[in-house]
Design a protein around this nucleic acid. Sequence first.
DNA 1: CTTTGTGCAAACGATTTGCAGGATG
DNA 2: CATCCTGCAAATCGTTTGCACAAAG
Lengths: 138, 138
Amino acid sequence: MSHTTAEIIETLKSKKLRVTPQRFAVYANLLGREDHPTAEQLLRDLNKDVPTASQATLYSSLQALRGVGLIRDVRIEEGVCRYDANVGLHHHFRCNSCGAIEDVAWENFQQVGAGQLRVGLKVESYEVTVRGVCDRCQ
Amino acid sequence: MSHTTAEIIETLKSKKLRVTPQRFAVYANLLGREDHPTAEQLLRDLNKDVPTASQATLYSSLQALRGVGLIRDVRIEEGVCRYDANVGLHHHFRCNSCGAIEDVAWENFQQVGAGQLRVGLKVESYEVTVRGVCDRCQ
DNA sequence: CTTTGTGCAAACGATTTGCAGGATG
DNA sequence: CATCCTGCAAATCGTTTGCACAAAG
């Protein structure tokens, strides 16, 4: 799951996105972490690479990346939006104690049937949000 | 599932909430509907009963009701918060076309196992959000 | 009469937008 | 060089808060 600079640039280009230092930094950062940072955390990191980068740039990079499907956003908490470079099928677990959010393998909920809802509803997708206490907090 | 004025007042009192016209109106409104209105919609309705009621009052009523468990909030969409007087266990379905949100019986996802996640996670609750197209929109 | 709620307006915090100058392909 | 991106500041939008007055029990 390691990504070289060249690979990241290639990915961005393949999605027809211009490769700017800001955009590269945001995407590389997201690819390299397992947690699901907020915009605030991402901006702090981005500013280590590009000190002059503004929120507007961060948000526009996130929008561009999301627009081509390279990242998704995770809305588990009130008010804030978190970001995730893992765009494969998976659900989320949020620790009620420390707030950490981790991925849950899709197969663990595979048995959720899509045809079981009331007649007339065409199910296109679903997501399971699990809440509890993680091992570190117990 | 019909609620009389007296019953609603009784419910509020049993939760040690003072019964004000504003609070009553908000709760009665939520009890009487199946959809999941936003604060904006609730305020519009509230102002039909109490024209002088402000947003601050609406939000404080909602907070009070939520605090004693009479309502819950539903966060399915970006930015807005929706409210639901159905506090029993259930999941939600959101139509990707018209945005309507309806309840999904808990049993339809009963088979979602709570002990199936990775070792170390203590699951306390989970919710399933289903997205698709409702019958009216098809 | 004590406590809690209301209503106004101002404050907030996350995200968005307008726009002039700058970088990318 | 045409297009798209950046960065600044100001704007937006849902929700929250401070505070003086009013209502509930």
